[in-house]
Amino acid sequence: MITLFISDLHLDECRDDITQAFLRFLNERAPQAQALYILGDLFEVWIGDDGMSPYQRQIAQALRQLADQGTQIFLMHGNRDFMLGKGFCREAGCQLIREQTLINLYGQSALLMHGDLLCTQDREYLRKRWRLRNPISRWLLRHLPLSTRHQLARKLRAASQYHTRNQAQKITDVTPEAVQSYMARYAVQVLIHGHTHRPTIEPLKVLGQPAHRIVLGDWDRQAWVLEVTERHQYRLKAFPL
């Protein structure tokens, strides 16, 4: 038995290479897994379930086909697709999970996160995140006309890209204090997250005990997949697009 973890695909119609790699993954590799966890930023942008494009419905149908074959699919919000809702999940046959989710991974507790909350030095981003994610903002966004949401999404995406390019690398990466704090709070020795686009398996100690932080890679130049076996083997693999 294996469980698969991916994040930061940033699926978009203009990146057919990523789309085709993901569809191959769903058809060839994912059906062998007991479960698939998508830890945020499945899509480059999401303006609401009522604004699903034919391309996004194609992705939902591919996920539904995998779910119908018996693989459980769990989906977490990222910073680009935090408006994903129950409508998409029903169509895709997946379950939406919280931003901090504790799972039993073959007898071992693991904490799952998208990863942006671990970047505590990036205060400008965290302030914008709070403003966009609070319930009032979400309600307002859902009730804007689709054309307005499209315009806003383009502006937010451009601002995010500019911010990332112009910030020092250490500011947009996680802080060790945040990693330690979350892992100690949830009493886990395994943390799996994405967001930073810096794939690694990092050994560390939490409360004096051996632990690991596993960072998923983004799907840009190659596709990154974490495989976890029932024997607690963690394999972070990269595949060509």
Rank of each mutant, 00 (worst) to 15 (best):
M1I: 05
D12N: 14
W139G: 10
F82A: 02
A67D: 06
H77Q: 13
T196S: 14
P145M: 03
V206I: 15
E99M: 11
G115S: 09
R165P: 02
G194N: 10
R138D: 02
T120V: 06
V215R: 05
Y37W: 01
G78W: 10
V190K: 05
V215D: 03
D8F: 05
Y162V: 07
L152W: 09
I192P: 01
Q108F: 05
I47Y: 03
D81M: 11
M113E: 04
R24I: 07
W46N: 03
H10S: 03
A159F: 01
L191V: 00
T172F: 12
G51L: 08
W130H: 14
L226H: 04
R231F: 03
Q167I: 01
N79L: 05
W46I: 00
Q72G: 13
Q58F: 01
Q180L: 06
L126F: 09
L4N: 02
M1W: 03
R213K: 12
I192Q: 02
D50R: 11
T101W: 08
S7K: 08
G48I: 01
I6F: 12
I6K: 14
A158T: 08
E227Q: 04
D17C: 03
G51T: 10
C14N: 15
A168E: 13
G107E: 04
L156I: 08
L11V: 07
R64C: 02
R64Q: 11
R142N: 09
Y125K: 08
E124I: 03
V225A: 12
G115P: 09
I38T: 13
Q108T: 12
L132I: 07
Q95V: 13
S7C: 10
L204N: 00
R98Q: 15
F22N: 00
L141Y: 15
D16V: 15
C89H: 01
E227A: 04
Y106N: 14
D218Y: 01
T196N: 06
F239T: 06
A33V: 08
D218T: 13
F5I: 13
G48Y: 01
I38K: 10
R80S: 05
F239M: 11
R129S: 10
K205V: 03
K155M: 10
M113I: 00
M76F: 06
P176S: 14
E44K: 09
P240M: 10
H150L: 12
P54G: 03
F43H: 13
Q58A: 07
A67E: 11
I201H: 02
Q169N: 08
Q151H: 09
Q180M: 03
A211V: 01
E202G: 00
G70C: 12
D68T: 06
Q161G: 02
L144D: 05
D16R: 11
N79D: 15
V45N: 03
Y106C: 12
A33E: 10
W219C: 09
L126K: 04
E44L: 12
I201L: 15
T71N: 07
Y162S: 14
Q20M: 13
A184I: 00
Q61L: 06
T101M: 05
D173R: 06
V225H: 04
S147T: 13
A21S: 15
R15P: 03
S7E: 10
D50M: 08
Q209T: 11
D116Y: 07
L191C: 06
D8V: 06
V45Y: 12
L63T: 08
L96I: 11
M76I: 04
F25W: 08
T71P: 02
R149V: 12
L84F: 00
D16E: 14
H195L: 04
V215M: 07
P135M: 09
A159N: 15
